[in-house]
Design a protein around this nucleic acid. Structure first.
Length: 579
DNA sequence: TGCATGAATGCAACAGAGATCCATCTCTG
C-alpha cells in the first residue's frame, strides 16, 4: 500500500483530534495540524522525503513528525495512533462534526455517560440523560438533536465559487434594502476568490443590527436560524450553506470587512506584527496600547499602519505574502481588465450553442482584441467533435468571416483530444494550419499516474500544441482530478514553452491556484480561458482571473493578457522548441 | 511538537461574540 501526502495528512489530523479529546498539550496538537496542512500541499512526496531524512528540514516539521511519517510509509500504520484509538473511541471523533460539540463536550459526555458515538449521543439527548452531565442542560440537548438531524440530511461539501457568488448577490440585495444599512459586502473565502467556499460571510455597516438580522431571517433561502445577536447572526440555507452575518457600526466597516475576509492564518500573522509594533488589531479597528484608535478609512490604511504593502484579498493565506509585503515585493497581480482575449471557447460547430459570429461579437463587447474558436475534435463524438476536414472548413469559414468583422480578431483553433497513448486526435498537417491548438484529456481518466503523466507530456512535445486544457481534469463536486504528476507536467511545460490553462469554467477552475503558482515559479506561462459553450459564458473570465491572482500571477505570466502581436509571436515561436 | 538557545530546557500563544451551564465552551476569520 502506498501512502500519499493526503493520506499522511489525514493521519496527523486524526492524531490531533484524538489528542485534543484527551485534553493533551495544545501546542502538540497545533503542531500536528500544522504539519498536516504543510504535508498536504507539499509538491513532493512526503514519504520519500522522510525516508531520506529530508522532511524535517521543512519549517514546522521536526524529528518526531518525520519519524512518524517514515513509520507510516513503511508499515502503513502508526503505533501511537493505534494506541490512541484504543483509549479514545473513534465515535468520539465523529461527534466533533456536530456543530456546537467540541472536544470538551465530547470528552465530558464520554466520561460521565460512557457515550461514544453520534447515535448514542442522540439517544441520550432525546431521553434526557444529557442533563446528568455537568454543564449541560435541556437547551443543549435540543440543540444537539437539531444539529444531528441537519448533519444527516445535508451533504457537507464546500460549494463552488460560482454558486457562492450567486447566493451572496441575493443576500446582499436583501440586506441593501434594509433601512439604515450604509454598506454591505461579502467577505471570507468568497472575497479571497477561493475555488470553493465552505460558508458565506456577509459584513454589513449599520447602526443597528436588529433590522438586518430580521431581514436575513426572512430571506427566502434561509431554512434555519442558528444564532442571532446584535452583532452576529448565523443562518443555514436550504442548500445546506452556512451564512454568517456581521453587523457593525459604519465607522468599523472596513476593519470588520478586513477581519471577516481572513484568512485566519493571515489575520493571526497580522496580529502578531501589530503586537510587535505596540498596536492591537481586531474586527473593530486598529488600536494603540493605551486604547487610542487609529483612523482607518480603507484596508490600505490597515496595512500601512503595520508597515506593510497593501495585500489584495486573493493573497491573504499566509503563504509568503506577509514576508513579501514587509519587503515591498508583492506581485502586481493580473486584473480582469488586462485580459485581451479568450483562447478556448466553443461554437455551434461542436457542442456550443452560440454561432462563431455571436461569440466574436460578445468578445468584442468585452473589449477583447481576439478570441480563439476551439471546438472539440472528432473522438469526442458526444460533443459533436470535428473531423480534420471539418476543422479546415471551419478555418475557411472564419477566414471569410474576418473580412466582415471589425475590432476583433477571430483565431481558428481546436480543442484536440489527447488520446490514451498521448497522440493527438487529428493529424499534424491539420493542426499545423490552425492558429491555436488546445490539447485536453477527455477519456481514460483512470490511467495510472505514470501513464497519465507520460500521456500529457507526449502531447506537449507535439510541436503543434500551444496550450494544455484543464490540466488535472477535476470537476468540482463531481469528479476528482485524474492521477498525474503535475509537477513533472509543469516542468515539461516550462521547457517546451507550452501554456497550461486555468480553465475559468466555475465547476472546473483547473489548474487551481496552488498549481498555477507553482507553474509560474517553474517558469511556465498560463492561459486563462473560459471554455465557454455560449456567448454569455465569456463572463466566467472573472473566476479564472481570481484563480490567477491567487496564484500570484502577473500580466506577463498570462499569454492572453498579451497584445495580439506578442501572442502571435509566442504562438509561432512555441512550435519550434520541442524535444 | 518545534524551535531557539546553548546542549536539556523553556516557551510558544489572536481576539472577540453568542449561548447557556453565567464560567466555560464553541465558533468565526
Amino acid at each position: 500500500m502506498t501512502m500519499d501526502n493526503a493520506d499522511i495528512a489525514s493521519v496527523f489530523r486524526e492524531l490531533a483530534d484524538l489528542l485534543e479529546l484527551k485534553g493533551e498539550n495544545p501546542f502538540k496538537i497545533r503542531a500536528y495540524r500544522r504539519a498536516a496542512d504543510t504535508i498536504e500541499s507539499l509538491p513532493e512526496d512526503a514519504a520519500a522525503l522522510a525516508a531520506e531524512g529530508r522532511l524535517k528540514s521543512i519549517e514546522g516539521i521536526g524529528e518526531a513528525i518525520e519519524k512518524k511519517t517514515a513509520e507510516l510509509a513503511g508499515t502503513g500504520k502508526l503505533r501511537l495512533l493505534e494506541e490512541l484509538r484504543h483509549e479514545v473511541p473513534p465515535g468520539l471523533r465523529d461527534m466533533l462534526r456536530i456543530p456546537g460539540v467540541g472536544p470538551r463536550t465530547a470528552a465530558a459526555v464520554f466520561r460521565h455517560l460512557g457515550i461514544a458515538s453520534v447515535d448514542e449521543l442522540e439517544k441520550a439527548a432525546r431521553d434526557g440523560r444529557l442533563k446528568d452531565v455537568p454543564g449541560m442542560g435541556t437547551k443543549t440537548a435540543e440543540n444537539i438533536l437539531r444539529a444531528v438531524e441537519r448533519l444527516r440530511e445535508e451533504h457537507w461539501t464546500r460549494i463552488p465559487l460560482g454558486v457562492a457568488l450567486m447566493l451572496a448577490r441575493s443576500i446582499l440585495d436583501t440586506v441593501a434594502r434594509v433601512d439604515g444599512v450604509r454598506e454591505a459586502a461579502a467577505a471570507g473565502s468568497l472575497r479571497r476568490w477561493r475555488e470553493t467556499c465552505g460558508d458565506l460571510d456577509i459584513v454589513v455597516g449599520a447602526e443597528k443590527g436588529g433590522p438586518v438580522m430580521e431581514a436575513v431571517s426572512a430571506w427566502h433561502e434561509v431554512s434555519e436560524i442558528l444564532s442571532v445577536g446584535e452583532e452576529r447572526g448565523s443562518f443555514a440555507t436550504r442548500g445546506g450553506v452556512n451564512v454568517d452575518v456581521w453587523v457593525v457600526p459604519p465607522a468599523e466597516f472596513v476593519a470588520a470587512l478586513h477581519h471577516a475576509t481572513g484568512s485566519k492564518a493571515h489575520n493571526v500573522r497580522l496580529r502578531g506584527i501589530a503586537r510587535e509594533r505596540g498596536l492591537k488589531i481586531n474586527e473593530h479597528g486598529v488600536f494603540l496600547r493605551d486604547g487610542g484608535r487609529l483612523a482607518v478609512a480603507t484596508e490600505e490604511d490597515i496595512y500601512a499602519a503595520l508597515g506593510l504593502q497593501y495585500v489584495p484579498p486573493e493573497l491573504r493565506e499566509d503563504t509568503g505574502e506577509i514576508e513579501a509585503a514587509l519587503e515591498g515585493r508583492l506581485p502586481d497581480l493580473v486584473q480582469e481588465k488586462d485580459i485581451l482575449g479568450d483562447l478556448h471557447v466553443h461554437s455551434d460547430w461542436s457542442d456550443g450553442i452560440s454561432s462563431i459570429k455571436a461569440m466574436a461579437d460578445a468578445a468584442r463587447a468585452r473589449g477583447y482584441e481576439y478570441i480563439a474558436i476551439c471546438d472539440h475534435s472528432r473522438s469526442l463524438g458526444i460533443a459533436g467533435g470535428l473531423t480534420g476536414d471539418e476543422v479546415l472548413r471551419q478555418a475557411e469559414f472564419i477566414a471569410d468571416l474576418r473580412r466582415h468583422l471589425d475590432g476583433i480578431t477571430v483565431l481558428c483553433g481546436i480543442e484536440v483530444d489527447i488520446k490514451k497513448d498521448g497522440t493527438l486526435d487529428l493529424p499534424d498537417e491539420v493542426l499545423a494550419r490552425l492558429d491555436v491548438v488546445v490539447a485536453s484529456v477527455h477519456s481514460s481518466f483512470k490511467q495510472s499516474r505514470e501513464m497519465m503523466t507520460e500521456r500529457i507530456i507526449r502531447a506537449m512535445r507535439n510541436e503543434n500544441v500551444d496550450i494544455i486544457g484543464h490540466p488535472t481534469g477535476r470537476v468540482l463536486g463531481r469528479r476528482d482530478a485524474y492521477d498525474v504528476d503535475m509537477q513533472r507536467v509543469i516542468e515539461e511545460a516550462a521547457r517546451c514553452g507550452v501554456a497550461l490553462e486555468i480553465n475559468a469554467y466555475p465547476e472546473r477552475l483547473d489548474l487551481d491556484s496552488g498549481w498555477a503558482r507553482r507553474a509560474k515559479d517553474a517558469g511556465a506561462v498560463l492561459a486563462v480561458n473560459t471554455d465557454s459553450h455560449s456567448f454569455d459564458q465569456l463572463g466566467y473570465m472573472i473566476f479564472g482571473v481570481g484563480v490567477a491572482r491567487r496564484g500570484w500571477l502577473e500580466r506577463s505570466h498570462v499569454v492572453n493578457a498579451w497584445p495580439l502581436g506578442r501572442l502571435r509571436e509566442w504562438l509561432s515561436r512555441s512550435r519550434n522548441h520541442r524535444a
